[in-house]
Amino acid sequence: AWQGRCIGTPKIRLVEFSAFMEQQRDPESYNKHLFVHIGQSSPSYNEALLESVDIRQIYDKFPEKKGGLKELFEKGPSNTFFLVKFWADLSINIQDEAGMFYGVTSQYESTENMTITCSSKVCSFGKQVVEKVETEYARFENGRFLYRIHRSPMCEYLINFIHKLKQLPEKYMMNSVLENFTILQVVTNRDTQELLLCVAYVFEVSTSEHGAQHHIYRLVKD
């Protein structure tokens, strides 16, 4: 049921993604705040299929030169391309940085035993500013292969970016900055170099009192 309803292909799917900050108050208590989150949901057949977005509408928000989004899409396979619009939850006061941890956790599952490489590129005005590349090995659990990138430390650039964003007095100003801030994640099979997933992330600030929200789209070329 999840095919066409979440980020995935017959080979692999994203099960969970979250970017968070966590502060240890004392040995037994933590405060955790989720900036963005895609949960461990199992969509049913009742749920609507993902809407699609023409990838050409967002090319310039991501690297355009060699190895850029256009080149990736031309190489395919085209069913591996997704767009996530996040409404990030920035409703938190960061007063004391002591014991603060900024991290990203993501989890994928597949039917095949692979070693995956995950590249995450942070882009400003479509230009890559930092890239993190992680390699993850499969763990067999409940009849499928799991890949968990657990509590990967957020880079300094992102932490500073969040701090600067928080200093802006109005949400429309934050959204105006976020219009030129994007993240591109590319998951490949390390051994075959096959593209498994390519997820483009764009952002706005959440106005909800219920935390981060998101919409997922398929990227297509009509």
Partner: peptide, 24 residues
């Protein structure tokens, strides 16, 4: 160039792109 970008609001994107989902 970065200064002549078309604003996202003026691009062909689904209506839902501008509608923050309500938590269920």
């Amino acid at each position: 160039g970065r200064h002549d970008q078309v604003p996202m609001r003026k691009r062909q994107l689904p209506a839902s792109f501008w509608e923050e989902p309500r938590p269920t």
